[in-house]
């Protein structure tokens, strides 16, 4: 059971957060990706839940820890710690519900404000199986994603379409960022500290804020 896996059989650990309006399918994307499960009527998520899945890139084992939270607006007030340490984020909307797409702008600014500047971001149009009810044209989202430098995929947690692809693309992007960051810092050792910070660091999470970034982030996050 992946969610029970406290082991150390991985080289890198990436924290990825799912955000987006209530009811767009965040929890089902999570369960599809980590457990290959889908529930037609899944419980509304309150608080925060997460699960993990380990993938291999370039011979490195990468443990992706995916976080899921309540979509209702007011829950932002208790989830400021949600973004701490996240290196990737997926903004999810429902292709059959235009308001959930329109709110992506809002979710993007929330992310820019609260998460690390280097966080890799993907836009996901979920419920692609509801083609007949499509309210958000693919091209429009594609343009929005390009303008904001986001990855973009349409997925269906119900029939699995593109779910793995969406997560894998994001994880790949994070991996590239991490590797590049390490090279930029001239630190080629496997155990190198990708962000150059002196904080205790294993061969793992990179992109964590440097002390300076930390201060800035703290100022913003307070309450």
């Amino acid at each position: 059971m992946s969610s029970e896996d406290y082991g150390y059989d991985y080289d890198l650990l990436f924290k990825i957060v799912l955000i987006g309006d209530s009811g767009v399918g965040k929890s089902n994307l999570l369960s599809r990706f980590t457990k290959n499960e889908f529930n037609m009527d899944s419980k509304s998520t309150i608080g925060v839940e997460f699960a993990t899945r380990t993938l291999e890139i370039d011979g490195k084992r990468i443990k992706a820890q995916i976080w899921d939270t309540a979509g209702q607006e007011r829950y932002r007030a208790i989830t400021s710690a949600y973004y701490r340490g996240a290196v990737g984020a997926l903004i999810v909307y429902d292709i059959s519900k235009s308001s959930s797409y329109e709110n992506c702008n809002h979710w993007l600014s929330e992310l820019r404000e609260k998460a690390d500047d280097n966080v890799a971001v993907g836009l996901i149009g979920n419920k692609s199986d509801l083609a007949h009810l499509r309210a958000v044209p693919t091209e429009e989202s594609k343009t929005f994603a390009q303008e904001n430098q986001l990855l973009f995929t349409e997925t269906s947690a119900l029939n699995s379409e593109n779910v793995d692809k969406a997560f894998e693309e994001l994880i790949n992007t994070i991996y590239q960022k991490v590797s590049k960051h390490q090279m930029d810092l001239g630190d080629s050792s496997a155990n190198g500290n990708a962000n150059g910070a002196s904080a205790p660091n294993g061969p793992t999470i990179s992109l964590t804020p440097t002390p300076n970034e930390n201060k800035k982030a703290n100022g913003n996050n307070c309450c």
Partner: peptide, 16 residues
């Protein structure tokens, strides 16, 4: 130092 995880990772595992 090479073996341990960051505080954040420890946090995550505790959370789990």
């Amino acid at each position: 130092k090479n073996k341990i995880k960051t505080q954040e990772e420890a946090d995550m595992e505790i959370l789990q």
